[in-house]
Write a protein that binds this DNA or RNA. Structure first.
Lengths: 122, 122
DNA sequence: GTCGTAATCAACTCATCGGTTGATCAACAG
DNA sequence: CTGTTGATCAACCGATGAGTTGATTACGAC
């Protein structure tokens, strides 16, 4: 009764985005890779805390890291971001499709009423 | 130094999606509104726990509730789902734009090398 | 080798999350 | 009125999240 691996990835990714500091990091990384120190600079929290945030993003596979001497630049992974929008859009579009269906029903009913209201129970 | 209201909404919405039970509820609601009892049925957890999940979704404005006698049907709110994809896509598309730019640079450099490497610094 | 810098590890505190059980409220049916 | 059903409220518990400080590793400069 364990959780499917893709579900775990979704858990971690959405949880990772549920924090303003990590969203700021994402926003920064969208303009190019950066080191932990560079990412920590605009925050008033400690560098260790930022390092932890990056680990959270890394476990969610939203970012990856490379090595460059003693620096460890962080890169954004747009493929995982796309997986999140894909999940959301799946259900959002189903819903909006139903809205369109409802519109169609309402229009049809209006048309029925328009041409003299035969007794058609719903 | 408080958090902007839109940031709080993002916090709550992403946190709400960071739970498989709540994602299942979203999936179910995409096919139409449902009551708490109906939503709780496929879960092995208590009805109170499901009620709490719905409260979390409601505070994130991902769902709304109406009244129907003693029932309280839950409806999905696709507008808020769309706000989430909008946030993600903003940064995802910036990134992919940079990928395209990098591609362009690489192709241009290849072309330069191809026609005998005039010294054109970036 | 020593020093300085980038980053992580370890241990701890405090708050919040996800779940439980038991009591309570609100709206119908008889 | 009494009962029943749908749903929430309240208090509590164990686990985990976000932050801190202090020590430690890894790499490069000298």
């Amino acid at each position: 009764m364990n959780e499917a691996p893709e579900d775990v990835l979704l858990d971690r990714a959405f949880l990772a985005l549920a924090d303003p500091a990590r969203r700021r990091i994402i926003a920064r990384l969208s303009r190019g890779p950066a080191t932990v120190n560079e990412l920590a600079e605009p925050f008033e929290i400690s560098k260790q805390a930022v390092s932890k945030h990056i680990q959270v993003l890394e476990q969610a596979q939203l970012v990856t890291r490379t090595r460059d001497a003693q620096r460890r630049p962080v890169h954004l992974n747009p493929a995982r971001l796309e997986a999140l929008t894909a999940w959301i859009d799946r259900y959002r579009l189903v819903m909006e499709g139903q809205f369109r269906s409802l519109d169609a029903v309402l229009h049809q009913q209006a048309a029925e009423r328009g041409r003299q209201a035969k007794d058609k129970p719903l």
